[in-house]
């Protein structure tokens, strides 16, 4: 019996999302082998061994189609007799993992946020306004881990043995024409960002975003925005966080000129530390915040940027 983790590679290495999934699998394995199924170019084991994985099954072709990924994972899980199959809860994981649940006749628990035992898993529901303990009633469990909820845990240097793995994955009926990166400024994509600086209608107009970007650069943070800001085209759509946008879980979320409407909070209330900067002391966001400044963003943000640069 084993725990199987699915890890796609990027530039010849395991992705951070993949290493996080491997760390989680190690924590729940309680004696079972942790086996990693790695797809794509793998020039070295890239740290997979040090997360506690004992064996790596390597499928050398890069595949993107969720139906092919599902066939690959199902084949490995069957060969290995896996009782738990773990994916990252990023968009690729969310697309392929439910298919595996169907093909393995398994129970599916997406968005797991913490380690628990056996066939019980804790996940977020109601857009972060509650958690649920879900019991799987099937022999096999398929789970996805909310990115950044667990982190990469280094178990010390160790090599995992790498074996070539092959499977019949069928043809893809989805043709990829092109890929467009969201940000070409090299910043971390929002769902994986550890620090986020976000701004709302309080910024008055798109021409004022310089002070938000300066703070983000000083902190090494990714920028985000409230929905009206995305809707009015002040900022690109993909920056919109909240109930109808992206859900994020950074270590630090700084909200500038955002009122803190319940739909906005739903996307950010799982952040570890929330800082709010707003002129209105009655803004609802202060109730969800750890630290706050009642003040004008146009004055506070430049000072904050300076103070961070002075570190």
């Amino acid at each position: 019996m084993s725990v199987l983790v699915y890890i796609p590679t990027h530039d010849g290495r395991a992705t951070n999302a993949g290493l996080e999934v491997a760390s989680y699998a190690n924590a729940i394995s309680s004696g079972s082998d942790v086996v990693a199924l790695v797809s794509g170019d793998l020039s070295g084991d890239g740290g997979i061994g040090s997360t506690g994985v004992s064996r790596v099954l390597h499928y050398a072709t890069d595949i993107n189609d969720n139906s092919q990924i599902s066939k690959l994972v199902t084949s490995a899980a069957t060969t290995e007799g896996a009782h738990t199959i773990v994916f990252s809860g990023n968009n690729e994981g969310k697309a392929a993992a439910p298919r595996v649940a169907i093909s393995m006749n398994a129970g599916y628990v997406p968005g797991v946020t913490s380690v628990s035992g056996g066939k019980s898993f804790t996940r977020n529901v109601f857009s972060g306004k509650a958690t649920a303990v879900v019991d799987v009633n099937a022999e096999v469990s398929v789970v996805t881990i909310t990115p950044n909820s667990f982190g990469i845990k280094d178990q010390g240097a160790a090599d995992a043995s790498v074996e070539a793995f092959s499977a019949e994955v069928g043809d893809s009926k989805v043709t990829l024409n092109s890929f467009t990166p969201t940000s070409n400024d090299g910043s971390v994509p929002l769902p994986e960002a550890v620090r986020v600086v976000s701004a709302g209608r309080g910024l008055k107009g798109p021409e004022n975003w310089g002070i938000v970007e300066d703070l983000a650069t000083a902190l090494g943070a990714t920028t985000a925005c409230s929905r009206p800001v995305g809707d009015m085209g002040w900022r690109p759509h993909h920056e919109h966080v909240g109930q109808t946008g992206i859900t994020i879980r950074p270590d630090l979320y700084i909200a500038c000129g955002i009122s803190g409407a319940i739909q906005h909070l739903a996307g950010v209330n799982q952040s570890k530390v929330i800082v709010v900067i707003n002129t209105d002391p009655e803004a609802p966001f202060f109730k969800a915040a750890d630290y706050g400044i009642v003040g004008d963003v146009f004055e506070v943000l430049p000072k904050l940027t300076e103070a961070i640069k002075a570190l």
Binding site: A106, G107, S120, K129, A130, A132, D135, N137
Partner: peptide, 13 residues
């Protein structure tokens, strides 16, 4: 294949 055993509200900030 699965069922919710228990819902919990997050701790109040």
């Amino acid at each position: 294949m699965s069922e919710v055993n228990e819902f919990k509200l997050p701790p109040v900030k």
